[in-house]
């Protein structure tokens, strides 16, 4: 087993633990935005898509590279934008017009 592989496995295992620990106790209203936000994060596959597109040989590999970049870009852009759109709705409004059933 090479040192590089051990390094990758280490990274993988530690990242798995961090992923579990980082999101404990999420209120239900944030389940959807959190899912959507993490959905955008796996758009990091775009880095891999760019790499294979860049060194593709021949029409088949170029086509696959093109396809991968399109799909991954949709994942990244769509993911972050739709998450922001959801969370935009939660922004603290200037406190609701006076006397409106407030303070509970």
């Amino acid at each position: 087993m090479s040192n590089t592989l051990i390094e990758y496995i280490t990274t993988f295992v530690l990242a798995a633990f961090v992923g579990f620990e980082v999101i404990s106790k999420v209120p239900t209203i944030l389940h959807t935005p959190l899912m959507s936000g993490s959905n955008a994060i796996h758009g990091v596959i775009l880095v891999g898509a760019l790499a294979i597109a860049a060194r593709a040989n021949g029409p088949l590999e170029i086509t696959l590279g093109f396809l991968a970049v399109v799909l991954a870009t949709i994942n990244v852009i769509g993911g972050f934008v739709v998450t922001d759109r959801m969370l935009e709705m939660f922004k603290a409004r200037p406190s609701s017009p006076a006397g409106k059933d407030g303070q509970q």
């Binding site: 993988f12 633990f17 992923g19 999101i23 899912m35």
Partner: peptide
């Protein structure tokens, strides 16, 4: 991996 782990928990 972050998404895999946090997504499983979610």
């Amino acid at each position: 991996t972050l998404v895999g782990a946090s997504g499983t928990l979610l």
